[in-house]
Design a protein around this nucleic acid. Sequence first.
DNA 1: CATTGTGAAGCGTTTCACAGCC
DNA 2: GGCTGTGAAACGCTTCACAATG
Lengths: 229, 229
Amino acid sequence: MGTERTRRRIPDATVSRLPVYLRILGEQADEGVESISSDRLAELAGVNAAKVRKDLSYLGSYGTRGVGYEVAYLVYQIRRELGLTHDWPVVIVGAGNLGQALAGYNGFGERGFPVAGIVDVDPAKVGTVLGGVRVRAIDELPQIVQSRRVSIGVVATPASAAQDAAELLVQAGVTSILNFAPVVLNVPAGIETRKVDLAVELQILSYHEQRRTTTAAGAAGGAPKSASA
Amino acid sequence: MGTERTRRRIPDATVSRLPVYLRILGEQADEGVESISSDRLAELAGVNAAKVRKDLSYLGSYGTRGVGYEVAYLVYQIRRELGLTHDWPVVIVGAGNLGQALAGYNGFGERGFPVAGIVDVDPAKVGTVLGGVRVRAIDELPQIVQSRRVSIGVVATPASAAQDAAELLVQAGVTSILNFAPVVLNVPAGIETRKVDLAVELQILSYHEQRRTTTAAGAAGGAPKSASA
DNA sequence: CATTGTGAAGCGTTTCACAGCC
DNA sequence: GGCTGTGAAACGCTTCACAATG
């Protein structure tokens, strides 16, 4: 046996940044870059270099002092740590506007999350084809989850149907849920959920915009008009 | 003049939760609830009651000891703090899959963020109508931003076009950007950006799924199969 | 007397600063 | 000499615990 690296606990904050490093490293590899320093990676990721080093140190000591990190090896290690050594098929509940966009977005499958199925309660939508995937009836959910071994479900329903959707996903055997509905999901312990809420994001921006005008009212020389990038 | 409450700095973590409280309070108001305790609000928001109280305390002392918070008044205060007392028109760059879904999503306008315009570089897309909004050429961006006084832009382009899109938005006068492209945007100081990255979210879930199997391998009685909610 | 508002403790994350190493 | 890896300090956020109070 010997090497059992995957056991250590990685801080949440680090886990949320690893995918960003991974994408950048992939791009660098495509451009032929073989080695990269924490300074450079930090610049590309828009973070502090010490943070990059600390983050990577949770994976183990994969850098070379005086040199940097070997891009290909780091890609491999991050992928392994994130569980990206195999595909994770996902099932989408809700074939409305958003569900359609998600199903039609190829980047999903390309990044290791193929759409195993999309289901909807609306009989009018069942049978239509979105992004190469046929919309199926909601009661086919357990069958899809089991036959395709799906562990990640996506809730793309209206708010009013989201809790029901989540419960159906859990009953079908899904253990992680990505929720696009503006609702706090109630799920059993052990089920991982993450939420993407567009209204929340916009309202956070609104807060800063509002602050800008309220706070700076009268303060001369506000935001620069010319782009520096 | 007198009351100048909007001056204090609110922690980022709190700002990101206020929209959640706001939505819940709105729902409660619709159900006829007039008063709510921090305990109840915490339960509905899926957080700790002390956190709710501390969060709300940044707005001022708007509760009544022994009683709770008056729902309508709290809604008013949060809306004011988040700058939601008026609409914030947004402009979307990119009329692909995602841009279309965003433009067609009415919840946007309903929550105070009407789509002032959607632009695309592709001449084939210009002129088509999405969710009641006609797609316009990208060089109309400055005109849209200025005439409609847009300060929030949404980047819904492919990754390769995102940086350009951001620069055009900034040049046009936008000061906040919501970025859906899997790219770290480089913007001048003073421009607020937020990122929504589906791949990152899925990869975080993947990490936990992977951890579940790696860690529990052999440990009996893993995740419960039956939903308790 | 139920519930808020808040000092203070606890905890996780970020950043610093430098020893260790190639 | 340059860059990683990491203790330790600094920081911000969360939670506790209880005094304040309608």
